[in-house]
Design a binder for these strands. Structure first.
Length: 471
DNA sequence: AGTATTTGCGCC
DNA sequence: AGGGCGCAAATACT
């Protein structure tokens, strides 16, 4: 792989232009199909305005696909007994019958009905619950927790408790353990590149939505350790690197980027800095977040220009590309028709407003696309480099490690978990320090591979432990 | 009866 | 009126 060539910003509309045949659907099933796909990719790379970067994207995606298979092979070391303890503490012991509610959930339900003064109120059905709430004088328009939290009524506290417990039970309760955890391993189904931006998706097991509450169930085998690392403020750092924003790079140099923004004197608190940064990348226009964005526009003009241009391109129906050349989808014909209709002389105010709203929605999408997508590319490069470095470790005798699942990674450190900007390596304890160093060095390597100059620091929050911690 | 959509909430 | 998802349950539709 070669280093990326210097180039205009990634949001430039002419970038990565090339003509190719329509993409095939799904993975190739035969050698002939695989070869045809490979040939198609070669054509795309050759015709691309940035062949080096697009080659890098293909290599990164290939590594990601391989790692997803290896993650499925290894599984996540999972302590089902600890999971059961967490559930029992929150919900009460596992009920004997499938349709029986755990005691603490049932009790919360009773408190809700008491507060409503309605002994038969249905809580699990949003429309029925909404009617019961309004009958009791709680003027809400939905039953969502954030709207409920704004009201002051005896039913609110027990209802929020009920919702939290019901969610835990249905999403990650005992039936989840039965379905997804076997022989000490949790095996979710990853879909590399399954998200339009290039992020991984999942289709079973919910690996990308594991509640923090259950993190302690992720536990190393006896004689093994977990090396947990997440990138501090990955997306803002990616934005700083893409845009070449020196002030933003300086704010994150060797330290927490949000604290760095505070130290630069433009924003009062870390919480505000985070809110402003997220608002800038998501396209917030109102609320506390929206109010802070103009300050960022003044302090980090290059970074903000990049996301603002991406939004503008999207609003006008164009496509944007990530750093390595993944393009956003073209505007749907319905969207284009709506915009065209709104500019006709007989367009109504409603037409114009609907079109304007759709345009702004699309602008927020393309604004976020370049950052989220490039962050996914950085994470792939990080993963691939970690995998490459782990392959150099010597196996530890299985007799000394009590490794619990299968021969493939017996005695060897291996990736066990991946979540957008976070990885967990499961390793024989004797290798833990060296693995931690490899993970750290891999982050530097990923930054150099994508952005070359090392102008922006990518810092890790890294821990060696027996079990993952809640947050 | 089976499928599609909506609601709500978990994660980044 | 801040981006991207998956999943369970209830409801709506065919």
């Amino acid at each position: 792989m070669q280093a990326p060539e210097p180039s205009p910003p990634a949001a430039s509309p002419a970038l990565f232009d090339f003509e190719v045949t329509p993409p095939s659907v799904g993975a190739p099933d035969t050698i002939a199909e695989a070869l045809a796909e490979f040939a198609r990719q070669r054509v795309a790379v050759t015709a691309s305005s940035h062949p080096g970067r697009l080659s890098l994207l293909l290599a990164a995606e290939s590594a990601g696909a391989l790692i997803a298979v290896e993650l499925a092979t290894a599984g996540v070391p999972w302590d089902a007994a600890e999971h059961d303890r967490i559930l029992s503490e929150a919900l009460g012991p596992r009920p004997a019958g499938v349709f029986e509610k755990p005691i603490k959930l049932a009790e919360a339900g009773e408190r809700v009905r008491e507060a409503l003064g309605d002994t038969t109120a249905a809580i699990d059905s949003p429309p029925k619950l909404l009617r019961a709430l309004r009958a009791a004088g709680v003027e809400v328009s939905s039953t969502s927790q954030w709207e409920l939290a704004e009201h002051d009524h005896p039913v609110i506290a027990p209802l929020l408790t009920y919702k939290k417990l019901a969610r835990l039970l249905s999403a990650n309760g005992w039936s989840w353990i039965d379905e997804w955890v076997h022989d000490g391993r949790y095996r979710p189904v990853y879909v590399p590149g399954g998200v339009v931006t290039g992020r991984w998706a999942s289709s079973g097991g919910g690996a990308l939505q594991l509640p923090r509450l259950l993190r302690p169930a992720l536990r190393a085998d006896p004689g093994w350790k977990l090396v947990t690392a997440d990138v501090s403020q990955l997306e803002p750092r990616v934005l700083a690197a893409m845009s070449g924003d020196r002030a933003m790079a300086a704010a994150g140099r060797g330290k927490d980027l949000y604290s760095g923004i505070v130290e630069s004197g433009s924003i009062a608190s870390r919480a505000d800095a985070k809110l402003a940064m997220l608002g800038a990348m998501y396209g917030a226009t109102s609320g506390e977040s929206g109010r802070l964005v103009p300050t960022l526009r003044r302090v980090f003009p290059a970074a903000m220009r990049l996301v603002d241009q991406a939004a503008d391109t999207g609003e006008r129906g164009g496509t944007v590309t990530t750093w390595l050349g993944r393009s956003s989808p073209t505007a749907e014909v319905e969207w284009q028709a709506m915009q065209a209709a709104a500019s006709l002389p007989d367009a109504t105010r409603r037409d114009e407003e609907a079109a304007r709203r759709a345009a702004r929605d699309r602008g927020r999408f393309t604004r976020n696309f370049i950052v989220q997508g490039t962050a996914a590319e950085w994470a792939l490069a990080w993963l691939a480099e970690i995998r490459r470095r782990l392959a150099a470790f010597d196996p530890v005798e299985p007799a000394h490690t009590a490794y619990q699942s299968g021969p493939v990674f017996a005695g060897l450190p291996h990736l066990a978990f991946f979540l957008h900007d976070e990885i967990i390596v499961h390793t024989p304890a004797v290798h833990a320090d060296a693995v931690a160093a490899a993970v750290t060095e891999s982050a530097y390597a990923a930054a150099r591979l994508l952005f070359g100059d090392g102008a922006v620091d990518f810092l890790l929050d890294l821990q060696i432990s027996d079990r993952a911690v809640k947050a």
